[in-house]
């Protein structure tokens, strides 16, 4: 961990300090029960990283991801995204960040129903203020590059899980965000499809330098990442370079290892 920060200390994309998250629940007798989910998280992620977050179910992975994705707010602590304090942002600014800077990929795909793949991919552009026809043109272009052109006019329920997730990834990419957050993107997919999706992420990270933070509880999915963070009961217990990373190994072989850089 120390060595990584030594390498990328310039301008972190994500910087989290002392971040806590707790939920207030109503107890059986009407009393308020505070359930703390994240404990004093400190985390720095630099541009271009490919991070896997692992941990048991209920360890707080999704909670952390939602905060990173500006979908949720922390109870305390600070979150700096590309040097900007997220806590100080207005609702409109957060919407703008979600639109422009973050592509979120969900386990359940979360495509808009009864809407074609093309329109699903085009919608973030509409929210960016781009006209419908221009948005569709760009969405089609992207679908062509991701090999989904022939499914452009299909609605989500006419697509396989893998195809839906690739549409969802296209949607996350349409505004060319510097950061992709994926919460168990392969959780609903079979092994072969999972592998294809992971190769897509890997390629995006390698070829376009997109920072990827990915949650998984499967070890073989985590192997695609270059850095591995392990959460346990709301604490970060491991944060290390991913020894098992095929990429890291390949790059090491090429003399391009992160550490030797």
């Amino acid at each position: 961990m120390a060595s990584m920060q030594a390498v990328h200390n310039a301008n972190p994309l994500i910087q989290i300090e002392d971040l806590c998250k707790s939920y207030n629940l109503q107890g059986a007798n009407g009393e308020t029960i505070t359930n703390q989910v994240l404990f004093s998280i400190n985390l720095t992620i630099n541009p271009g990283e490919f991070v896997a977050i692992m941990g048991h179910s209920g360890s707080g992975k999704s909670t952390l991801m939602n905060i990173l994705g500006c979908l949720d707010t922390p109870t305390s602590g600070s979150y700096w995204l590309a040097g900007k304090n997220v806590a100080a942002m207005s609702g409109d600014e957060l919407a703008h960040i979600r639109n422009q800077s973050i592509g979120f990929v969900f386990q359940g795909f979360n495509l808009l129903k009864r809407m074609t793949a093309l329109d699903n991919v085009a919608t973030p552009l509409l929210y960016a203020g781009i006209g419908r026809s221009q948005s569709r043109k760009r969405a089609l272009e992207l679908l062509r590059r991701t090999g989904l052109e022939s499914f452009a006019m299909h609605q989500p329920n006419q697509l396989s899980g893998g195809q839906q997730q690739r549409v969802a990834i296209s949607r996350a990419l349409i505004n060319e965000p510097p950061l992709i957050l994926a919460d168990e993107p392969t959780g609903n997919l079979d092994t072969q499809t999972s592998r294809e999706i992971m190769l897509l992420f890997e390629q995006l990270n390698r070829d376009q330098g997109i920072t990827i933070v990915l949650v998984t509880h499967e070890d073989d999915i985590a192997t695609y990442a270059k850095r591995l963070i392990r959460l346990k009961d709301g604490h970060i217990i491991v944060d290390k370079r991913n020894e098992a990373s095929e990429t890291a190994l390949n790059q090491a072989a090429d003399g391009n290892s992160l550490i030797t850089q």
Binding site: L71, A95, R98, N99, N110, L111, T123, P124, Y127
Partner: peptide
């Protein structure tokens, strides 16, 4: 859910 998705991809209030 649809509203949540729209917000996640950049819809403001």
């Amino acid at each position: 859910r649809e509203i949540g998705i729209r917000m996640a991809i950049g819809a403001n209030q």
